[in-house]
């Protein structure tokens, strides 16, 4: 019975690693993305993955100090991406 919590912790660590790999993939799109909208979408996904990582880390350590951070970032990320979308529009208008 005492091995199960250790196993769960290991699984959480693995999922954090997987999140890191997906963040790298998203950064590739962020750097490569031909248009500004590509980069915007990639940045949104990066923020979502960061949030996932924070929650998973909080679950792993049981440290709930990160939860308000998650709330704040989820709000600021929304404001940021809608604001940037206006500027991107100027850039791609032909």
């Amino acid at each position: 019975m005492s091995t199960l919590p250790a196993l769960l912790d290991a699984v959480l660590v693995v999922s954090l690693v997987l999140l890191g790999i997906s963040a790298v993939l998203v950064v590739v799109r962020l750097l490569r993305g031909p248009t500004g909208l590509d980069r915007l979408v990639a940045l949104d996904v990066l923020v979502a993955e960061f949030l996932c990582g924070l929650v998973a880390y909080a679950a792993l350590t049981g440290d709930s100090a990160l939860v308000p951070v998650v709330v704040a970032i989820s709000l600021v990320g929304f404001l940021g991406s809608t604001t940037v979308a206006r500027f991107v529009r100027r850039g791609t208008d032909r």
């Binding site: 959480l12 997906s22 998973a56």
Partner: peptide, 18 residues
């Protein structure tokens, strides 16, 4: 943990899709 792993796997596949 199962829920987190499911979400992370979906996220990984979505990054590949990106």
């Amino acid at each position: 943990t199962v829920a987190i792993v499911a979400g992370v796997l979906l996220t990984l596949v979505a990054s590949i899709g990106l």
